[in-house]
């Protein structure tokens, strides 16, 4: 897949998962891997980058069993970004469908 496209799609996936429910890195990886079969080492830098760009924030959530885990949460601009990515994806999907005669 084209890197730019892949990047956008993965951003969209990650943000959508977190939008549904605040969650931690490994869960996000598993959710995407389940559908797209992606490597773990690709997801972590993406999470890091999204935090850096201000779309996500993190907080530590204590757990009963072991050390606290880092949870990811969508920020306001993260939500706006997600909406624009969703729009872009839908337009893209629609156009590709037209092209391939769905």
């Amino acid at each position: 897949m084209d890197t730019q496209l892949k990047k956008g799609v993965l951003d969209l996936c990650v943000l959508s998962i977190i939008d549904e429910k605040d969650t931690y890195g490994y869960f996000i990886y598993q959710a995407i891997d389940y559908v797209l079969g992606i490597s773990e080492s690709t997801i972590y830098p993406i999470l890091r980058r999204l935090v850096k760009e201000g779309y996500l924030t993190t907080y530590l959530k204590p757990s009963v069993h072991g050390p606290a885990r880092k949870f990811f949460k969508l920020t306001d601009i993260g939500r706006t970004h997600l909406n624009s990515l969703q729009d872009a994806w839908q337009t893209f999907e629609y156009k590709v469908n037209q092209l391939i005669g769905e």
């Binding site: 931690y24 490994y26 773990e40 972590y44 999470l47 072991g66 885990r69 880092k70």
Partner: peptide
């Protein structure tokens, strides 16, 4: 990045 993998070990184990 290392923190993700550290956490990964905890999660898997715990």
């Amino acid at each position: 990045i290392m923190a993700f993998y550290e956490e990964r070990f905890f999660t898997g184990a715990m």
